[in-house]
Simulated assay, not measured.
Amino acid sequence: MTRTADPSRRSERSRVAILRAALELCREQGFGGVTIEKIAARAGVGKPTIYRWWPSKHAVILDAFMEHIAAELTFPETGDHLEDLRGWLHSIAGVLADPAVGPLIAGVVGAAQYDPALAKEFHERVYVPTRETTVARVRRIQDEGRMPDLSPDTLADLVTGPIWFRLLVAGDLPGRDYVDTVLAAVTSQAQNT
């Protein structure tokens, strides 16, 4: 009896191979060295297969990044809202400080400046969810009187902005100590008011 190939399994295998190839190539050659042709060759698929699912290499790399970090971003809920925010920021800094991931996400952010579709995708899939989580946690801490009486959006910028600045502008990988210092500076303002 001859078996018929299951197209959904084949396409899932191809999708996984494409995402794995994109990550491997980024690690080996840097974001700028990756092309759709190289991804297709590494994954063992044709370029039309990639373009069926993604409009550009940037979109492939963003998906590869999102799948890679999904398990690494943690959303602690311990009841201590300040420590929960600290844990959340540590997980963000940990992902960005990973030498295999930080340069990749920096490349995606850079490419998004010139690719409106990628910018929209990054905004919806990365920025909005992380922003909403951070703002919600800041509000809880403010309700406890442990953060200054400023706009929660401003406070979210104050606690996350330096982490992104370190990665994108300074080229430095933010660590846990840096996150703790930033958070201490912001929360100390609540004690002084």
Rank of each mutant, 00 (worst) to 15 (best):
E132F: 12
L104V: 14
Y127L: 14
R140W: 01
L62S: 04
T35C: 11
Q142P: 02
N192V: 11
I18H: 05
H81Y: 06
I18V: 15
L173G: 02
G171L: 07
Q142D: 09
V135Q: 00
S188K: 15
M147S: 09
L118R: 01
V60H: 04
G175T: 07
P103I: 03
L25M: 11
G171T: 11
G145Q: 13
D177M: 02
R166V: 03
E144P: 00
A64V: 10
E28F: 03
V135G: 04
L62F: 08
L19V: 08
A5L: 15
L183F: 11
A17W: 02
L168V: 08
I163S: 02
V60C: 08
V169E: 13
Y178W: 03
L104I: 10
S151R: 06
V95Q: 04
L155I: 15
S56C: 10
A184T: 14
G161T: 08
S14Y: 11
G175Y: 07
I61H: 01
L150W: 13
V135D: 02
E144W: 08
R137V: 10
A97S: 14
D172F: 08
L23C: 09
G79A: 13
G145R: 12
G110R: 12
M1L: 10
I69Q: 01
R13A: 15
R15S: 13
E28V: 12
I163M: 04
G30D: 12
P162I: 12
P129Y: 07
V135A: 08
A136I: 08
R3M: 03
E83L: 12
L82N: 08
I50P: 00
T134N: 01
K57I: 00
L104H: 03
W54G: 02
F122D: 01
A97P: 01
P48W: 13
L89W: 12
L25V: 10
H81P: 00
L96C: 07
T74A: 12
Y127A: 02
L158I: 07
I50W: 02
L19N: 01
T133D: 03
D180H: 10
T154C: 13
D149R: 15
E12N: 06
P174F: 10
R86L: 09
T78V: 11
A64F: 05
F122I: 07
E67S: 06
R139C: 08
G44I: 04
G145V: 13
V45T: 12
V101F: 09
A59N: 03
P116M: 06
I92Y: 04
P76D: 04
R176S: 11
G87C: 15
F65R: 00
V182H: 13
R27G: 13
A71K: 05
I61A: 03
A64Y: 01
G32K: 13
V128W: 00
A156C: 05
C26V: 14
S91W: 02
I92P: 04
A71W: 05
A190S: 11
D80C: 05
F122Q: 00
V60N: 02
L118C: 07
D115N: 03
